[in-house]
């Protein structure tokens, strides 16, 4: 039975990775899961300098989901290279570094610093709804998406995944723009912009007023978008959005995802990733399927 998948020449031992921002740099969850069991660890967004993030409250629960407006707090590329990357490199898993910036220059500085670092892939976050400049502004304009993809590709030493936002009318436009810019893969979806109001205090629950919706509540939207993009582009797709169980992960794979990422589920089940890997293996066995790759995009 084969569980491994390939993305842009990088072989993942299984198709399950962590979703950026929900797993830190793996350190905290290493107490709960053997990181070597994972297909890949995707890090929290890394910028060229430390980012302080947004004021609190930064999170709010919603039915079957949650809103977050962390604001991409991160310790910056220097600390990442000195502390977090050596930690991750101890494990037998692929390392995908999620990159964020306010401007093209900031993204490119991080990409250049990573060029000779032991990193397997880059994921470029052009879809964060929680920062004022940068982030999502690159993801909602197809011209900007194609341009930044091309600039990143010129400098990147590793394969490049462009992370897309669902906060657009037609996500396949963004997917094609990334493909045209030379992206090696795309990942989707980032969070859906949402809001929660406290009727007792008659105020916003989040200090940022709006936040990104994630968790089981967004899964059907994400599956639909992965399916649409799979019909629109040739490059591999990493599917995410509300994945909690092996069944959820298989839905994304059948819709056309080569790999999947688990985010919010880590918060209520720190062992979600490894349980999903085991569940996928059981599914293959029970259904006498030899190779996970035969399921990718099998539902048309």
């Amino acid at each position: 039975m084969n569980l491994s998948v390939d993305i842009a020449g990088v072989t993942l031992k299984n198709p399950v990775m962590t979703a950026s921002g929900t797993f830190g740099s793996g350190m905290e969850y290493a107490d709960f899961v053997d990181l070597s069991a994972l297909g890949a660890v995707v890090t929290k967004g890394v910028a060229d300098v430390p980012w302080p993030g947004n004021p609190t409250p930064r999170v709010a629960e919603t039915y079957g989901g949650m809103l977050n407006a962390i604001g991409l707090q991160n310790p910056g590329i220097d600390v990442f290279l000195e502390r977090d990357l050596p930690f991750l490199n101890q494990f037998d898993t692929k390392v995908i570094v999620n990159v964020c910036g306010h401007s093209e220059e900031e993204y490119l500085r991080v990409v250049e610093r990573l060029a000779d670092a032991p990193v397997d892939m880059l994921e470029i976050n052009i879809s964060c709804p929680n920062v004022k400049a940068g982030g999502i502004t690159f993801g909602t304009d197809p011209v900007a998406t194609e341009r930044i993809t091309r600039e990143v590709k010129k400098r990147a030493a590793q394969p490049v995944i462009m992370k897309l936002t669902p906060n657009v009318t037609d996500i396949t436009v963004a997917a094609r723009a990334a493909e045209n810019g030379g992206a090696d893969a795309i990942s989707l979806i980032n969070t859906l912009t949402g809001m929660k109001i406290d009727v007792k205090t008659r105020s916003f629950v989040l200090a940022n007023k709006t936040g990104g919706l994630s968790g089981p509540a967004i899964k059907p939207v994400a599956v639909r978008m992965v399916y649409q993009c799979a019909q629109a582009v040739q490059i591999p797709i990493i599917g995410l959005g509300g994945i909690t169980t092996a069944e959820d992960a298989l839905e994304f794979i059948l819709a056309g995802a080569t790999a999947v990422a688990v985010g919010t589920a880590n918060f209520f089940n720190p062992r979600a990733t490894v349980e999903i890997i085991d569940g996928i293996a059981d599914y293959l066995q029970q259904n006498r399927i030899e190779d996970i790759r035969s399921l990718i995009g099998a539902v048309r």
Binding site: T22, F23, G24, T56, R58, A60, N68, I70, F267
Partner: peptide, 11 residues
């Protein structure tokens, strides 16, 4: 307010 409760999410 917390989300992960284990130090990973920076909420």
């Amino acid at each position: 307010r917390m989300a992960c409760g284990v130090g990973a999410c920076l909420a």
